[in-house]
Design a protein around this nucleic acid. Structure first.
Lengths: 143, 143
DNA sequence: TTTACTGCAAAATTTTTGCATTAAC
DNA sequence: GTTAATGCAAAAATTTTGCAGTAAA
């Protein structure tokens, strides 16, 4: 699982004639070891803990590469922080975002995915990705 | 339609002991006259066209009031621009966002709404709002 | 006349960029 | 050896804030 994303990223890099570096490996390890929805700042903190000489710019640039390579996707939960989430090929999940404690629960639903496709077809629209987020109060916060 | 949002906003303002000002009315008029998904900058430009002395800070502050009063909602399409869309009470719509030309088509689907509710119930989650966006290529861009 | 609002400029955030140096290939 | 990547600091870009003056209520 982790191995394959690492491989996917390295293949993307060499395919593009880009270089694998110590810094990028540290960022990749931190990203893969992380919770699925980490803000750029949180990731930067983890990276610094492993190697304090790595700069913010490198983290930003590396995350963009992750997105290009397909192992990550940028997401916004509306709190002003850009986050990146893991992408597993062929899989898509949506989110229940608690507006009280900030926790994020993922879910998948085939029927919704199919309905989305139908709607898009009605409009002659070709879907590339989608985003479905439900905001509210999670079970824990409701007691 | 427009009258009622104006009324809704003014009632919210007086209810909170806040003041109606010339500037806020200009921003409100520009917002109501606008396309449904206007970025803060686009709105600021329209406001300036009507009254060049109005500052950016006033537009930002006024948009936040619109959101609080319930006539507008902040949305992010992932292009780094904060946008505000009109909110009609009781109604919710989702979006087909063209990643090529940037156009946004709205849609509504009862079945999806119901499924979302069911999923939330399964998790003991109490939904307040939701966001569903399909990204891809619109009919026009596909020819 | 009291209280909130405005406009400006400064500050705070978040992200990007230029460039000399360093490290992969 | 070439070419790309790094780290820093500066620059952009976006949003917020402090404050003295102004305008609603």
């Amino acid at each position: 699982m982790k191995r394959s994303k690492k491989k996917q990223f390295h293949e993307f890099m060499s395919g593009k004639g880009l270089k694998s570096t110590r810094q990028r490996d540290v960022v990749l390890d931190c990203f893969l070891a992380s919770d699925r929805h980490m803000s750029t700042e949180e990731l930067y903190m983890k990276v610094r803990a492993k190697n304090p000489t790595i700069g913010y710019a490198t983290v930003y640039r590396t995350l963009k590469l992750f997105a290009e390579s397909g192992i990550a996707r940028e997401i916004h939960f509306g709190d002003g922080q850009t986050r990146y989430e893991h992408v597993a090929e062929g899989e898509h999940h949506d989110h229940l975002v608690c507006t009280r404690c900030g926790s994020v629960q993922e879910f998948e639903n085939e029927t919704i995915e199919r309905l989305q496709q139908e709607i898009a077809d009605q409009f002659g629209f070709q879907v590339e990705t989608h985003k479905l987020e439900l905001y509210g109060i999670c079970a824990k916060c409701r007691q």
